[in-house]
């Protein structure tokens, strides 16, 4: 029963979610539509389960880093910073939720969002530009015919996408557009179709209980 009950729940919930967006009208006997079951029961449950999962995961994080601090493991100062900032943000958000109309609380939360969370996330996203530069420098070598095609396509797309491309050669933008609209679209469509079928078959195995790996074994 340890396996059967979760599999049965998976099947029933999966079917309800599947039919929610694509059917209208009440299910006979139940006098409720799939959509209503989703919005009335399942969506709140999803939120509750996610909240508990966040709680569980946060406790793991706090225990792990708490023990690093307690044992003064190398780099424990980073763990201390993590624990303090995590508790600070949690308290700040709880106060924001408890007093949603207090202008001072709203402004304070806005300030920490704009001045701490936003720049930190933005900085990580910005690092992408530098990593793209080093990865392309390393990867784009004309070692073979295929690699040479990749190299030429990459250069055309890079120059065609930036305004400076048209100044270097008039045809860069139109070549870039052609590469994106024709060979890229053809390849993307093939991958989309293949990946969608793969995703569908995986979902079907999970729905029918044929895939149990995620429950911790076959």
């Amino acid at each position: 029963m340890r396996r059967e009950i979760p599999l049965l729940i998976t099947f029933l919930v999966g079917i309800i979610f599947l039919f929610g967006p694509i059917t209208t009208g009440n299910i006979p006997v139940l006098e409720m539509s799939f959509r209503q079951i989703v919005s009335t029961y399942l969506s709140p449950w999803t939120t509750i389960i996610t909240a508990f999962a966040i709680g569980l995961a946060s406790i793991n994080l706090l225990r792990l880093h708490g023990s690093y601090v307690a044992r003064k493991r190398s780099g424990w100062i980073n763990s201390a910073a993590l624990v303090i900032s995590m508790l600070f943000f949690t308290v700040a958000r709880i106060i924001r939720e408890l007093r949603p109309t207090d202008p001072e609380v709203v402004a304070f939360y806005g300030r920490i969002f704009d001045n701490i969370a936003a720049p930190l996330s933005g900085a990580m996203f910005a690092i992408l530009a530098f990593y793209i530069a080093s990865a392309s420098y390393r990867a784009f070598r004309a070692r073979s015919l295929e690699a040479s095609v990749l190299l030429v396509a990459a250069i055309i797309v890079m120059l065609g996408a930036a305004p400076v491309g048209a100044l270097i050669w008039d045809y860069f933008p139109s070549l870039q557009r052609w590469l994106l609209a024709v060979p890229n679209t053809a390849g993307q469509r093939a991958i989309i179709i293949g990946a969608a079928i793969g995703g569908f078959a995986t979902s079907l195995r999970i729905l029918f209980g044929l895939e149990r790996g995620y429950l911790g074994g076959d």
Binding site: A133, P163, G165
Partner: peptide
Amino acid sequence: MMDAQSIGHLIIVAFIAVGNFAYF
């Protein structure tokens, strides 16, 4: 921001070109 993007792309293309030139 577009000028910065143009210069950024040019620098990346330059590094790719240098890498390939040295490779050959």
